[in-house]
Amino acid sequence: MSDTYTRLSRSIAGHRALVTGAASGMGRATAHLFAAEGAKVALTDLDQGACEQVAAEIADAGHSGKALPRALDVTDGDAIARTVPQMAEELGGLDILVNNAGFSLPAQLDDDAYPDAWDASIAGMLTAHSRTIRAALPFLRQSEHPRIVNIASTEGLGASPSNSPYVAAKHGVIGLTRGLAVDLGREGITVNCICPGPIHTGITAGISDEHKEIFAKRRVPLRRYGHPEEVAHMTLSLVLPAANYITGTAIPVDGGLTIKNA
Rank of each mutant, 00 (worst) to 15 (best):
S2V: 03
D3T: 14
T4S: 09
T6A: 06
A13W: 10
G21M: 02
A22S: 15
G27Q: 10
T30P: 04
T30S: 14
A39H: 11
K40T: 03
A42K: 07
G49S: 13
A55T: 03
A56I: 01
D76C: 11
L91Q: 11
L91M: 12
G93V: 06
V98C: 10
N100P: 07
F103G: 04
F103V: 00
S104I: 02
L105F: 05
L105G: 00
D110S: 11
A117Y: 06
W118F: 14
D119K: 11
A120T: 15
L126A: 05
H129C: 14
T132V: 12
R141Q: 15
E144C: 01
P146F: 12
I148G: 02
N150I: 11
E155D: 15
L157F: 05
P161G: 07
P161E: 11
P165E: 12
A168K: 00
K170Y: 06
G179H: 09
G179K: 09
D183S: 14
L184M: 02
I189E: 06
T190H: 09
T190G: 09
V191K: 05
N192S: 13
G206R: 08
G206E: 06
G206W: 08
S208R: 08
H211P: 00
R218N: 13
L222S: 13
Y225Q: 05
E230M: 01
H233G: 00
A243Y: 06
G248Q: 10
P252S: 08
G256R: 10
L257I: 04
L257E: 13
I259H: 01
N261P: 00
A262D: 08
